[in-house]
Write a protein that binds this DNA or RNA. Structure first.
Length: 263
DNA sequence: CCTATAGCCTGACGGC
DNA sequence: TGCCGTCAGGCTATAG
């Protein structure tokens, strides 16, 4: 479930595999993945050009040709970029594939079809149109700014952290982990949070995202004291030994330790 | 204005 | 053995 940490990883991955190679072909295997573009539009704009840089904002990634054309990638829940050289390494759900002149391929692999690929001219305009808030890593949000972004919410803290129009990139797993480590119940109303609690959430947010980004390639590196390693109803809390519970917050499954995270 | 909720999508899994 | 309901959570659209 790609959130900020995965996006940071995807960016590195694409930078390392897919830049500065002329695009020979674009093949769309399922047009439902396309956002306001077509296979022929993509071909006309991209064939013969290269991706020269990438840019990540929240859960979006942009492949830039340096020529007023950018490919916008959104990974939904099950999407990921896969670069491969041989057919046997082709992923299982390649909804769209770029073929490079050097024989390499970049697939947009997306099992559940909740992702999207679009062709845009300017990512800043795109971000504005989508109404996305700043990215906590690349946007370098200060603590006062963080408070500004969330403090007028009348909803629950977990839902608010996941609101992409306030802060872009925090999803279900990250918000769950942040609140577990900050020892705050996910259903706490934002307006009931103390300054100390807000500070704790802010500090934890950065640490969780950066630590998790390092573990994306190898899930066994997720720290054992994280709730992410214990997402099971009835599991032992790694902090207090109490019982982990599954609750629902705004329709999304959420694991908490009721002992550590009191309302 | 605001927040909460249903639904889209596909495959894994468990119960019968 | 195999069918079928439920769940997963990115988002958007709509209801409240």
């Amino acid at each position: 479930m790609p959130e900020l940490p995965e996006l940071l990883y995807f960016k590195q991955y694409l930078d390392a595999t897919s830049l500065n190679q002329p695009i020979q072909a674009v093949t769309v295997h399922n047009i439902k993945i396309l956002n306001d573009t077509s296979e022929s539009d993509l071909r006309e704009s991209l064939v013969g050009r290269s991706f020269v840089s990438t840019l990540q904002h929240g859960k979006y990634l942009f492949l830039q040709t340096g020529d007023n054309r950018e490919v916008e990638l959104h990974f939904g829940m099950t999407g990921r970029p896969v670069y491969y050289e041989h057919e046997e390494s082709k992923p299982e759900y390649p909804r769209l594939v770029f073929d490079f002149e050097n024989g390499g391929h970049l697939a947009f692999d997306c099992m559940r079809m909740l992702g999207e690929v679009g062709l845009i001219e300017d990512h800043e305009e795109f971000i504005r149109q989508k109404g996305l808030g700043p990215d906590p890593i690349t946007g370098d949000i200060s603590f006062p700014r963080f408070c500004e972004l969330i403090e007028d919410s009348r909803g629950m803290i977990k839902t608010t952290l996941m609101d992409q129009s306030r802060i872009a990139g925090i999803g279900n797993e990250c918000s769950e982990e942040i609140l577990f480590q900050a020892r705050i119940h996910p259903k706490t109303k934002v307006r009931d949070l103390t300054e100390t609690a807000l500070r704790k959430i802010y500090d934890t947010m950065r640490e969780v995202v950066e630590t998790k980004a390092k573990t994306v390639g190898s899930p066994n590196l997720i720290p054992d004291h994280w709730i992410l390693s214990h997402r099971e109803d009835g599991a032992d809390c790694p902090k207090c030994g109490g019982e982990i519970k599954r609750i629902e917050v705004s329709g999304r499954g959420t694991y908490i330790c009721p002992n550590c995270q009191e309302m």
